[in-house]
Design a protein around this nucleic acid. Sequence first.
RNA 1: GCCCUCGUAGCUCAGGGGAUAGAGCGGUUGCCUCCGGAGCAACAGGCCGUAGGUUCGAAUCCUAUCGAGGGCACCA
Length: 549
Amino acid sequence: MTPEELSSAVTACLKDAIDAGEFSIELPSEVRVERPRNRDHGDWATNIALQLSKQAGMNPRQFAGILSSRLEKIDGVAKVDIAGPGFLNITLDAGAAGELAKAIVEAGPAYGRSDALSGTRINLEFVSANPTGPIHLGGTRWAAVGDALARVFESQGAEVTREYYFNDHGAQIDRFARSLLASAKGEPAPEDGYAGAYIEDIASRVLAVEPNILELPEAEAQERFRAIGVDLMFGDIKESLHNFGVDFDVYFHEDSLHENGQVEMLLEKLKGSKNLYEKDGAWWLNSTEFGDDKDRVVIKSDGNAAYIAGDIAYIQNKRERGFDLNLYMLGADHHGYVARLKAAAAALGHDPECVEVLIGQMVNLVKDGKPVRMSKRAGTVVTLEDLVDAVGVDAARYTLARFSTDSNIDIDLDLLTKRSNENPVFYVQYAHARTYALARNAEAAGVDDSAFDAALLSHPTEGALLAALGQYPGVVAQASTFREPHRVARHLEVIAGTYHRWYDACRIAPQNGEEVTDVNRTRLWLNTAARQVLANGLDLLGVSAPERM
RNA sequence: GCCCUCGUAGCUCAGGGGAUAGAGCGGUUGCCUCCGGAGCAACAGGCCGUAGGUUCGAAUCCUAUCGAGGGCACCA
């Protein structure tokens, strides 16, 4: 029995008790059963008596008493104890927990998936770095987390579009183009420009494409460097993301919003919105209503559209493409965008809820325990490729995805490389590989899956492993609702831990000449179940699940 | 000045109202005639930044405060 099944059975008991008039309360939307830390407290525990007794006008233990007599009648429940202030501790029948092993094996890759988001179209925008250089550590974090989040949504039935928004004009790109030009001429990088080996590399590749480029007038040459350089740079970015296992469905070019005067037309229409007003010759968006500290100019007093006009048009564009939910995954240096994006959605007449901004904290580079500022100028930028070269794709993706995006993370490349074998990803992958080793040995010893008797999975480590496997679907669901894929990684570490301990305590293959029994066969099922859940979870993180290491 | 995030073991971090606060790394000590030792077991290590509040119950929610990081253009 899974915690979800138990939880809905408990809910049904509550409903019956209410219908029978045993107490009068509102049925809670969700009843949570938790795995108690202390095994003396049963297989699963719930605190609903503590939560609901006040509403029912009785003390918690009294409430728990009424409920427990009903819980005891649930199929698969062996015993219900009332403990402490009013916890209900539930112990399952010997076979009830073990049945899960078979259920998982039969569900296969579908175990942990749900249809909670089926029919929901989600646009998830992440990375979105302008092509002025390679993806650095910050962008790499969003690539790892964003893609994992997309996979989590997909596992819940959503249709996800991974989107990358960029522009190739403006001050940043100008600096990039001037830096390329300078490099091609053999001059030092401009004062406000970019330095680094990649500039020389791109510059020489531009020269290879267009050998006569330096004979053009300065302005024309710079424009050619911009156009060709951006293409080359973007090619490199896409390639390194692809090698990282992240492929975007849409690379959205900001300029496409401005074609055919689309933005102007949209702004004209918006002048009728109550969220847009005229003051001092400019048009303002009332973003303060959505938490901004000041309203933002949309149309400058010179009549030109401000940058934010593009954001507004972009939201409209996304809405027209039919997305139910538009997620923006941005770094903490963009947190000021939240209010204006919400305000923009409202101004367009959309529910601001259709725009959701996920703010993630920054990645810091650390060397010898001291922070190092990443600077494109100083050439101290650590890129996605540097990280992958140092530790490999699996360790890189896992490391970045296992932290909450609410916390800053420090990365010490030297330390990471040195300790790469101790990265938790290997702990999890090793558990997965071990399931294959055990299966190979089991087969050699004549153990097959011809029998399954759930009641034989009676060892404490088997209970713990089954419980961890049973919690997996709930963890994935939480990762989806909270937009926190790191929960999946953390739970895989728990599963790997319970698996290793089970391995240590229980054998699948019989030892020196003992007969094969149903215990061996049933354990083989549990082994396969553990492998399946580890593989499903690693897949959500975009990390490989090796058969051997 | 205002806004956002964080402050938990020596280090890096989990913990979204529950029972005795966890993991990895680092430290000490055990475990390979036995399915993979990239593993397991044990020990040491904590006024959960501080002070109030809400609650039967707070690391978790609220307020204040200190500290760290990030943001607050008719730039893009």
